[in-house]
């Protein structure tokens, strides 16, 4: 029923009752290394043309040094840095935060809030990049079609710095 309504009146998707969800899950794998630092990790939204549209998460060492923090190593997330990071003022309210431990981490975005509320129909990618001090770097891409279809889901699995990564859409 809700789908029928949104199809007929897409501009009416404003009330919280109608809001859908973009649920992203990112797994930071346990690594058997002698010197371990939590990875810097960024999640962002890209258009079909490769243009970055919005940051969804930026986890970095916010406490490393007074004032500047660990911003010095943000550029190690190379793709993120080139596409959107170097134009991002950190900290970003509700988006940037401290590095996270090993395990699966859930991110949830409402379809009626930025950046998804203003998204035009089309194909997009949610990109996840992790870079670790004295470690490696890995980038995974999850395709997203907009507007979301019920049960739409994309998964990927990293081989080094990322574990299972997924996005599930709830219109």
């Amino acid at each position: 029923m809700r789908r029928a309504v949104t199809a007929l009146f897409p501009t009416l998707i404003a009330g919280p009752a109608l809001a859908g969800e973009v649920a992203v899950s990112v797994e930071i794998p346990r690594l058997d290394v002698s010197e371990y630092h939590r990875p810097y990790l960024a999640v962002w939204l890209e258009g079909a043309d490769g243009a970055a549209l919005a940051n969804l998460a930026v986890w970095y060492d916010v406490r490393k040094k007074e004032g500047e923090g660990g911003a010095k190593w943000l550029k190690d997330m190379r793709q993120w840095w080139r596409r959107i990071g170097r134009e991002t003022e950190l900290p970003l309210d509700g988006i940037s935060g401290a590095t996270k431990p090993v395990g699966a981490h859930a991110l949830s975005f409402s379809t009626d809030a930025a950046p998804f509320a203003a998204l035009k129909p089309g194909h997009y990618e949610i990109v996840v990049e992790a870079a670790r001090e004295v470690g490696g770097r890995e980038v995974l891409r999850l395709p997203v079609s907009w507007p979301p279809q019920a049960g739409a889901r994309a998964e990927a699995r990293g081989t080094s710095e990322l574990g299972a990564v997924s996005v599930g859409l709830k219109p």
């Binding site: 500047e68 010095k72 550029k75 840095w81 990071g85 170097r86």
Partner: peptide
């Protein structure tokens, strides 16, 4: 050649 931060 590519740097981030405020004072490097």
């Amino acid at each position: 050649t590519v740097l981030s931060g405020a004072d490097v």
